[in-house]
Design a protein around this nucleic acid. Structure first.
Lengths: 228, 228
DNA sequence: TAAGTTTAGTGTATTATAAACAATTTTAAA
DNA sequence: TTTAAAATTGTTTATAATACACTAAACTTA
């Protein structure tokens, strides 16, 4: 069935996640061409000869959202011979966490955010890739406070808890959550309050970006809270 | 510098780890051809058109060690344009844990086990790949008792602790270690004792393979013991 | 302007897990 | 039989996780 040659096509596909309307959203693009015409797909593209895989993923992310300098990490490489119906394409999947406000609003109705837990029919193995990225985000959150990547620069603790809850897929106790994050390094309490909430304003916090490298090991979701 | 075409060569490279002489060992092959002639390299090969990446890694492992049905997991994909000096080769790296006794003894002096912490000059980016695999093995051990993959079918708790210590890169307390593993699921106490030790014989244990799938989440090294 | 509604914010007691720590037992070898 | 090496075993302390409910502040509306 296959001609056992040595070359394949290699792409990067990027699962771009953000948070709004109390949902984790993934950016999808509706395909205009075969294969999988009219199905939705995560953004991707061929790896160029002069760039490494991280650079290819950054380029795709920048092209589709206009953002860079955000959390972007290699997830897994998918290489099933039949994942592409007409050619042999191996794809290195990345996942990115971006702030909804940073993304350029696109008027194209064929580029849209979808709830990661309520996906339309997807092209290729992209459903599997998105499922992997949900798991990867959760595992990443267990060792590193990546959830702040989804939040605005200034955020309330309620917003932060919501991000944790969406990624972990479970509700957290408000008092225990605040106790844990308030004693963690890197979180800075501001003397500002959210103005746009309709009820009691909430204190705003921000992250000390300079110390983010040292945060590995902090903000750990406990073993018991792990979704195994 | 580069012709931005769409095809690259893709290989799998496999970090094969085992344990003997109280050391974690990695299987290396001395290269006979350029590039990197006479440097050591981890076993690898081109991905065939008809196989997926897991199958390619299994094939390479089987060819080099004669073993299959062992722990073998995708690690990371390395795609720096300059990682291969003369062509554009993207490699999907895997890591495997095997029992030293299961591996066919090879008489070829250019195939040898090396201490992972004392490596000879390596070809390509293989030093980086091996470092990644040490980290990957440690992280895997934190959520799953993969260390048993390095042990014989019947093993003593001292041997098991040694495997944990080598992977974690630190010494563990004997009493706390035994307390933790003895109350974990899947470990079966045998009425047999090691005969080849020169002093007091140690009780042998084995793993309940049937229940291994349910072991995720057990045998967790605590957060405090994590090497971050 | 008072009452009602919504969200923000806070502390303690209990339980579970991890960590520190040393003496005794068993066998083979001398 | 004495000695040496490795195996085996429990308790105490410290830390972390969990469960749990009321008050405070601001806006809305009657």
């Amino acid at each position: 069935m296959f001609n056992e040659t040595r070359t394949h096509e290699i792409t990067v596909d990027t699962v771009i996640l953000t948070m709004f309307d109390d949902e984790l959203k993934v950016l999808l693009i509706k395909r205009h061409n075969e294969p999988f015409k009219d199905k939705w797909a995560i953004p991707g593209g061929y790896v160029r000869m002069s760039e490494n895989l991280d650079q290819a993923a950054e380029r795709v992310l920048k092209e589709k959202t206009g953002v860079d300098n955000v959390f972007l990490e290699q997830l897994y490489t998918f290489g099933d011979p039949l994942r592409h119906p007409t050619s042999r394409v191996i794809t290195c999947a990345y996942f990115a966490l971006v702030r909804a406000n940073d993304v350029q609003v696109f008027s194209d109705p064929d580029v849209a955010w979808h709830n990661v837990n309520d996906l339309p029919p997807l092209a290729f193995d992209h459903k599997q890739i998105i499922e992997y990225s949900k798991k990867g985000t959760r595992e990443r959150l267990e060792v590193c406070p990546v959830a702040y990547q989804l939040l605005n620069e200034k955020f309330t603790l309620t917003e932060m808890q919501k991000a944790y809850e969406l990624i972990m897929g479970k509700q957290l106790d408000k008092r225990n959550f605040r106790k844990k994050v308030l004693c963690a390094e890197g979180l800075i309490e501001l003397n500002e309050f959210s103005k746009f909430t309709s009820k009691r304003p909430a204190r705003l916090y921000t992250f000390d970006k300079i110390n983010l490298d040292s945060l590995r090991g902090h903000f750990i979701m406990s073993n018991k809270e792990k979704v195994c």
